[in-house]
Design a protein around this nucleic acid. Sequence first.
DNA 1: CGAATCATGTAAGAGGCACTCACATGAGCT
DNA 2: AGCTCATGTGAGTGCCTCTTACATGATTCG
Lengths: 215, 215
Amino acid sequence: MSWSRHGGGGTERRGYHHGNLREALIEAAVSLIAAKGPAGFTIAEAARQAGVSPAAPYRHFRDADALLGEVALRGFERLEAALTRAWANGTPAPVPAFEAMGRAYLGFARDEPAYYAAMFEAHVPREAAPGLQSAGDRAFAVLREAAERLAAVAPKERRPPALMMALHVWSMAHGIASLFVRPDPSRRKLPMTAEELLEAGVLIYLQSLGLAGGG
Amino acid sequence: MSWSRHGGGGTERRGYHHGNLREALIEAAVSLIAAKGPAGFTIAEAARQAGVSPAAPYRHFRDADALLGEVALRGFERLEAALTRAWANGTPAPVPAFEAMGRAYLGFARDEPAYYAAMFEAHVPREAAPGLQSAGDRAFAVLREAAERLAAVAPKERRPPALMMALHVWSMAHGIASLFVRPDPSRRKLPMTAEELLEAGVLIYLQSLGLAGGG
DNA sequence: CGAATCATGTAAGAGGCACTCACATGAGCT
DNA sequence: AGCTCATGTGAGTGCCTCTTACATGATTCG
């Protein structure tokens, strides 16, 4: 039992029972995904890092998808927090705050690749973890509420449905993150940073609605 | 040797040698990915469908990534063809032709989910198949050239870099395809079709450049 | 305080897959 | 006909997922 004595990996082990195996497995999953991509993660390896036998994780997660789903869920919570922070309730002004949210989205994809991968690349079924779907909804809601606020200050005759604005911006941000922030066979070199690309795109879009600069 | 007699699957088998195993494996991979997602594809299962032993595929592909990479390569070729057809060299007019390209992109994601998944979701390394990177480049080039043509008819003072336009539109189309055309934990119901969403987004964007309707 | 209970961990194992290597087959060339 | 080489087979290694029966010890309750 090489795994039962000293606990090797991240979290300490105090006896036959681990003490906090569930959390330790989630941490291990995050670090494995960060290191080797979502496909490089295995239950067996996570168990090894946590210092338990390969069967132990099944006491806490039905299967690999459930563990990955838990990582994705926490990712959505973190993204929601990051977007909320960036939006800062629309301060100092709605348009720059909106731009800040875009940067926050790309920053999240860049800085938390493991969470991002679990959320968008691992293709975890929505029902893999309870609350996963709603965590995703809450993250989107931040963007949507910001869009409502923005739409409210647009000239009436150009005012678009806020939900549509939110979907457009989310799509562009997500597309840029997927194509240019993360490695991909279709990836190409950009003549600018991903953040600049998104900012320019959003500005052009908002101009059309009478919300930014040269509208 | 259940596999050596009649060849069961798609392609006929005439003896000890298959005759066209390489193609048969690619077809099998496409149908498997379509049926069970990119993770549901295995070399062993593809071999089974082709009616050969599990070791045979390795005579034609270094590993699973190489086979998946070949599928992705062909996907980029098909996408390039679809985009070229939709753009129709800018006829009848650049803006509607551009919109048609957007619809073609989403149509591709919807109608060829196996190819789309191999291209964008399987995370095949760019070097997995020779020519994969350049096939991706060629597909993007169609969009880029269309953007050049569009930019050329924009009012000079608003004319954006064509490459940037192409990147913006590609990103939005790809984001919409990823988030709303294909299943995903973050997927949500749309108040409109994906095609309508993209068309509206592109129109708003182009308006800002003096290229569409109410600019 | 001591015993029953139950959550949590282990051992063992069935079944599957990726990939390798030595060997078999037969297609195409001379 | 005989050679040669691409292509396919069989067998095997090592790793993975997930299951089942059993072990351990924290907790609860008489």
